Amino acid sequence: MQVSEGGKVALIAHGPSLIGIFMNMLLFGIMIMQTSVYFSTYKKDPTWLKIYVAVLFVADLLNSVFNMVWIYDALINNFGNLEALATANWWFQTEEAMAGIIAMLVQFFYAWRILVLTRNYWWVSAILVTSVVSGLSAIGTAIGVGIVKKFIEFQKLEIVAILWLVGTAVCDVLITSALSLHLRKHRTGFSSTDSVLNKIIRITVSNGLLTSALAIADVTAFLASPTGIHIAFNYALVKMYTNSVMSSLNSRQTMVANEVSMGSTINKDGTRVHEISNFVTTNRSLRPQVVVNVETHEMIDVDNPSKVDVEWNDTKRHSPNNSVNAQ
């Protein structure tokens, strides 16, 4: 079966875009659920964090609206219009720009968490630099799309696109490495504490690997094929960022429950474990807990040994902590 010229254009750009937008909308549904869970569960979070989540949600919403408007305009309003199908418009440009902006918002949040947790300014500086470079490169890619316009000529944007996608992958790897190495270094040897640390590490690694893997797949497809197959990865990448940070925020309820169940867990050097609360929580700090056991003593007549034995035996027989009676 022969494919028309318009069909070839649609196969190059709009087929992968449609698949990517399907994934984008699916992940946006998960984002809606995660945002709802956050606002209903963490009502005592600081105002700035609630505003941050609201901004992420609005950005995600706008991204989905722009994507739907673009694909509808291209495939319905301009059905059969070869010139329109072969040319990108500003609706399409918003995808690259918002991908960079949303990625920076998420990576800045993780950089703040790493700063609070580790106080390591080298890690934070590296994360911020790579995040800004990749974010500005994404915006530059959007500007380049407006200049080139033709889908078939997007290979001209190779340098700025590589900076964007490789930069965001490197930034995600840095975030994952910084958190994982710090948490592994602060293992305590206590199973309850290490269990919580392992869960935090797994969440961190899985979120970081998903976003970095999609970014690498995006740039690989872009360089390996002149078709628009890389666009499918790009649409999913935006929502993976917002869902990763919401997953991290919403996992705090389970982490805090596990932390409370640990009681006053201490390190081998006698210090209280603070790393878990610093990573999991955002507006509270745990103070060292001190448990005092008070023993009571009763004065008895020691001049009469037989009386001492009788009273001691009587006390032991009626004591609620008597192991014999407890059995």
Rank of each mutant, 00 (worst) to 15 (best):
M1H: 10
V3L: 14
G7E: 06
I12E: 11
H14Y: 12
I19S: 10
G20W: 09
G20D: 08
F22V: 09
M23W: 09
N24D: 05
F28E: 08
G29V: 05
I32Q: 10
Q34I: 01
V37P: 06
K43E: 12
K44V: 13
P46V: 05
T47Q: 09
L49C: 05
Y52A: 04
A54C: 05
L56D: 01
F57S: 07
L61G: 03
S64I: 10
V65L: 14
V65S: 07
N67H: 08
N81L: 11
T87N: 09
T87W: 06
A88R: 04
E95Q: 13
A97V: 15
A99W: 13
G100L: 11
L105V: 05
L105P: 01
F108R: 01
I114T: 05
Y121E: 06
Y121N: 07
W122I: 12
W123I: 00
V124G: 00
L128C: 03
L128K: 03
T130W: 04
V132Q: 02
V133N: 09
G135T: 07
L136H: 00
T141G: 06
I147M: 02
I147A: 04
V148L: 03
I152A: 06
E153N: 13
F154C: 00
I159V: 08
V160R: 00
V166F: 10
A169Q: 02
V170R: 06
V170E: 06
C171A: 08
I175S: 08
L183I: 15
H186P: 04
R187G: 13
G189H: 08
D194Y: 11
S195K: 09
K199E: 11
I200K: 03
T204N: 15
V205E: 12
S206A: 14
A215Q: 02
I216R: 08
A217H: 08
A217W: 10
T220G: 00
A221Q: 03
F222E: 11
A224N: 11
P226V: 00
T227H: 04
T227K: 05
Y235H: 06
A236N: 00
A236V: 03
A236S: 06
V238Y: 03
K239P: 01
K239S: 09
S244W: 05
M246K: 06
S248H: 13
Q253I: 11
V256F: 08
A257C: 01
N258Q: 11
E259S: 06
T265A: 15
I266T: 13
K268E: 14
G270Q: 11
S277R: 07
V280T: 14
N283Q: 02
S285K: 05
L286V: 09
T296W: 12
I300Y: 07
V302F: 13
N304I: 01
W312Y: 15
D314S: 15
R317M: 09
R317K: 15
S319F: 07
P320E: 00
S323I: 12
S323A: 12
